[in-house]
Design a protein around this nucleic acid. Sequence first.
DNA 1: CGTCAAGCCCTTTTT
DNA 2: GGGCTTGACG
Length: 737
Amino acid sequence: MREYLKKLNAVQKKAVLQTEGPVLVIAGAGSGKTSVLTARIAHLIDSGVPIDSILAITFTNKAAGEMKTRVQQIVGNYGRMIWISTFHSFCVRLLRQEIDAGGVYSRNFVIYDESECEIIIKECLRELNFDDKRFKPSYVRGIISRSKNEMQTYKKFQELAVDPFEKNVGEIFELYTKKLIENNALDFDDLLLITVELLKKNTEVLKKYQSKFKYILVDEYQDTNHVQYLLTKMLAKVHHNIFVVGDVDQSIYGWRGADIKNILDFEKDYPEVKIINLEQNYRSTQIILDAANCVIKNNNERRPKNLWTENHSGEKVISYNAIDERDEADFIVRHIRELHELNEKYSDCAVLYRANSQSRAIEEGFLRAGIPYSIVGGYKFYERKEIKDVIAYLKLLYNQSDSISLQRVINVPRRGIGGTSMKYLREYAINNNISLFEASSRADEINQLTGKARTAFSEFSLLMFKLAGEQGKRELPDFIDYILRETGCLAELELAKTPENDARVENLKEFIGVAQDFVKSDTDGSVAEFLTHIALVTDLDKAESEDDRVKLMTMHSAKGLEFPYVFIAGMEEGLFPHARTLMNEREIEEERRLCYVGITRAMKRLYLLRSRVRSIFGQISVNTCSRFIDEIDSVHLEESEGQGVSWSKDKRLHTMPITAYAVSTRTHFDGKEALLKKTNSTATSAWRCGDKIVHNEFGNGTVVEVKGEGEKMLMKAVFPGLGIKSLMAKFAPIKKI
DNA sequence: CGTCAAGCCCTTTTT
DNA sequence: GGGCTTGACG
């Protein structure tokens, strides 16, 4: 028997070997579903199934990447060719081939992220003369998104609209749709929606993919939305070999349109389905599982299951009542340090939280202590201004209809083109039914423009033609470098030597590095694929597990992962469950499932932390303990008696003026990297993490991060009471002490 | 046209 | 507490 089969238990093996017909695997947390999925793929290949007739769909790129790696480990390099991807990247791949069959978009479409979509919505509001206070772009975008996830286009939405507000949203929706088409741009939801529409309308294309994919596997099926449901159903219609894996208790994307019914009703869709329950947990101790079960059993909307383990009972779940978020962070730091002294790896520890905004306080704790950490997800590299600017140049060069990108870069660097000139340009473009790009090349025909603006537009379009001429001639990283130099983006940043500009230049270099990695990876190295890559692959996906760092992330991001030591921070009513869910029982249940996901990430030891006082929006708020802690039977819990835990502290809290906690000890810094990066040339190799230094201005401090060497060396140091400062060792007035 | 300060609303989670 | 828009001024 094959090695990968030997490792499986009887039930898992059954799931792997049942290759024909629909199969539903109910996989409890930690029951080895990834092993089952990879073994099944390997088994299919072993049985002679052609590799290009297997389609595996996951929810995150990270999961897809991991599965690909594991399949390759079993079947060898040949496994590279397999279709393992997220729904979204699968759809892009299909659309790049087929989208012109729909007759609306062309293959060089670009993908708009949320902020770009909101800009479009703002344009719609302006044109329709709607108030952007009443129709908040982010809110309207949410409505449109949910609607598309329900497979509703604007026409359907307009039919269903009852009140005046909805009717107005329907108008916005319609104009929004038209504008995306004009820009030859798709939003995230379109990637799925347009694919399904295309397959529905175009039977030739549908047949092609239906017959191609003989075996379809879908991971995290409980998180599929209606469009995704339709897509899998259509693709599986001919061969009926559809294998879905999921766990109702881990459904945490209802707010994104995920519908638990898809998994609950799978049997109705496929009456001949084989149902397999994976109930043995290999991950956690008995006590951790008990705690998780205590919480989840309070949900009504679920299918009871019996998750069990042969693991020993283990340690009790440790709870801690922190005074404030700084105390909470310090508790985590103390305990991780302790674990590290006992030879546990930093990378075996994870801190999970409900909202990204919680990462700040915890991050500061790690910086103070000099503990290496990395934040997964959250504020993204690709959202930095300078990065978005280069991407916009690439997008515009790739797709000249993209007016959003044009408007982003037209005055970057400053070319003296302002709002008034842009207004005339837009009017001209609309009147002549041409793109902004074409309008700018015909600026001399626009009478209202000042001579200066006319020249600026003409020079801009000449520059773009020049850049476009180099596209394809140069390798991608070189092309990006060329853009940065020719446009003057780089020169503008290098003009004024500020730490901020230095950081931006460093970020741009890192972006070129991303392009270099991309070219080396398994792609065609084209601008098209690169743009798709950066639109769909967030830095969440490059969680470098090999280096020894504590991982910080939301519980959503943590799904599918496991860690020996897990800290869940912010177990407070209003934060978790989040205040915005408190009014609605269904949403509370989703929060509870999220808690279940969080708890079941832990293998050996779980810490549940809560803070009595927390500052939210710069306001101090006092929170009570999360109901989820109360739901855990106290026999599984043990209150930590570390510093600041006892009643005496608690009483002291009430006698102290609460504003005392509002005092911030940190100076402002812009993201982890932005202001912290500097370069250095002299005696740089002398600096190491943990070095105590004295700075002429800031006083005593500790080096917490050193990156690069020689000219490229970047360092970060923390100064008590001042926070983290970025230092250019070359210029910084620092001495080792 | 560009800059700066005051005031706004906000953060739930992500492909 | 902070990022973004707005409006006054140079």
